[in-house]
């Protein structure tokens, strides 16, 4: 299964490198969303921080949530893209015919999306620091949060993406399916990132635990159910 996962992940990433959809379309979209949040939330409005008496700009205080929203919306594009490249010529059926383990296909596609999300998070994260200017309190907590959230987004995203695969309605269906499921992830990631940026760290680690449990749950569910999902897709 691991070997099959590596093959699938390598295939998806090679397609990505040659088509440049991530760099040319998804990354600019993510950064654009960050800029647009600045139009929706007045940049010069100041509020008291939730943790201290320090006054911050509203954008700075909301930075963790806005960052994860931008990532979430961009992740939807990456997930759809991951199944768009399989939709031509009944590719998913061909993978099964070629003897690929369904769990391996799930893991491989998830890992490829996770790799793309890491790149996305680096760029959008850098943009968020530059545009919103929040402090950074705990780097380790931030890295742990980003890593586990990436896993949660990729595993749940690929599992739900497969539910719409092979249908003409996929593009509109997948966001409807996956956003309510990822709502708890958005919540946990935002809280953990708030702790990592503004402190105290102790609150954040509990949410990191939640993100880890969520990732593991969806990793297991995806590996178990992907066989049934790929059948007759």
């Amino acid at each position: 299964m691991i070997r099959h996962a590596k093959l699938i992940a390598a295939k998806d990433l090679r397609i990505e490198v040659s088509s440049k959809v991530l760099t040319a379309q998804i990354l600019p979209f993510g950064v654009l969303v960050l800029v647009l949040f600045g139009f929706g939330i007045p940049p010069d409005r100041r509020v008291l921080g939730t943790d201290t008496d320090v006054s911050r700009s509203l954008l700075e205080q909301a930075a963790p949530g806005l960052f994860w929203l931008a990532v979430l919306f961009s992740a939807l594009l990456a997930i759809n893209r991951s199944f768009a490249i399989e939709s031509a010529d009944g590719n998913l059926d061909a993978l099964r015919l070629a003897g690929f383990d369904p769990g391996g296909v799930f893991l491989g596609k998830s890992l490829a999306v996770a790799a793309e999300l890491i790149v996305l998070e680096l760029v959008v994260g850098l943009g968020a620091f530059l545009l919103y200017g929040p402090p950074l309190n705990d780097v380790v907590l931030l890295v742990a949060t980003v890593t586990l959230t990436t896993g949660a987004l990729a595993f749940a995203g690929i599992l739900y993406g497969a539910l719409g695969a092979g249908s003409r309605l996929r593009d509109t269906l997948v966001p409807l399916l996956v956003l309510p499921v990822l709502a708890p992830v958005l919540l946990a990631a935002t809280r953990a990132t708030e702790s990592a940026l503004f402190g105290p760290s102790s609150d954040g680690w509990a949410w990191v635990g939640f993100l880890g449990a969520f990732s593991l749950l969806y990793l297991g569910a995806g590996i178990l159910s992907f066989g049934s999902l790929l059948e007759e897709s």
């Binding site: 249908s167 309605l169 309510p180 007759e232």
Partner: peptide
């Protein structure tokens, strides 16, 4: 949760083979 189950109902209406759809 309301939106979660709206999604479930949407999958039940997918334009595809009934057996595969029921499985999903």
């Amino acid at each position: 949760s309301f939106v979660l189950y709206l999604g479930y109902l949407a999958v039940r209406r997918l334009d595809m083979d009934p057996v595969a759809r029921s499985k999903r």
